[in-house]
Design a protein around this nucleic acid. Structure first.
Lengths: 143, 143
DNA sequence: ATTCTTGCAAACGGTTTGCACATAC
DNA sequence: GTATGTGCAAACCGTTTGCAAGAAT
């Protein structure tokens, strides 16, 4: 279970600390997509000296290694839109640009089986990738 | 253009200020889903006394009235997930809970026509609504 | 022994708040 | 004239950073 991360860290020469294992193990057991603070609170009982800063740093490390994913970005600033009618977004992973997308097929996706009791009122599709400008720049910088 | 908001504010007895109109008008002309700061910077040229706090308050007001929408939430904290394989989310608008959703059909949506030059690398579908608990609570509190 | 991580406290940046003054009605 | 909004500065909260002490290799 935790072995995969142990091996992977070892292989890359990244020190294997108690904190890293504990944080990863806890996140793996959680189903609620916890925040750094939630994780910290939960782990503090067992590891009273664990600091919140370490939780943040560890989450960054694990994310960098592809072991975990972010549901929302840290420090993302709020963005507003006067367009309130249904639409979708293409989000550039490099620069954060958000472009609108209109598409009837995406508007009427079949509602999938949902967690028990969840009342769905709407949906939107998020495409991610590189906007034209960043795609150009990336191509150039990759030798 | 701006008349709809003028009427709507009047009708509700909400004072119609220059700031509100200017902020809404500017947002309506923007295609880049600006942040509060971006709007403030842009408007400051024409309204030098406009404060950032007013921009924030106005955006809240307009959002409350349904005139604008939020692309990301202000002060949303980062949330993490040890599940890195493809999946989708159902997000509760009341409590912010995020539930995982697995669905093959959603995994392979047809790629729609995209803004010129945008390179898509992936997508995910966000359903919004009320989780079981909040749905129950809402029903109870609505007489 | 060396290199990388941890924990602390201070700094940071975006957002909110409290309050005196100004404006819309 | 009253109620509400505005602008300012301070507070706030989540996240990051600098650094001395500690742990992993």
């Amino acid at each position: 279970m935790i072995i995969d991360i142990e091996k992977s860290l070892r292989r890359r020469g990244i020190p294997l600390t108690h904190q890293r294992l504990a944080i990863y193990a806890r996140l793996k057991r959680s189903k609620e997509h916890p925040s750094a603070e939630t994780l910290h609170r939960a782990l503090k009982r067992r590891y009273p000296s664990l600091s919140l800063a370490t939780v943040y740093k560890t989450l960054q490390t694990l994310h960098g290694l592809g072991f975990i994913s972010l549901v929302n970005q840290p420090h993302a600033q709020a963005r507003y839109d006067a367009l309130t009618k249904r639409h979708h977004h293409a989000i550039c992973e490099a620069c954060g640009a958000i472009e609108d997308l209109f598409n009837k097929r995406l508007d009427r996706l079949p509602t999938p089986p949902v967690p028990r009791g969840f009342k769905i009122t709407g949906h939107s599709v998020h495409f991610r990738g590189l906007c034209a400008r960043c795609a150009r720049r990336t191509r150039r910088s990759k030798p």
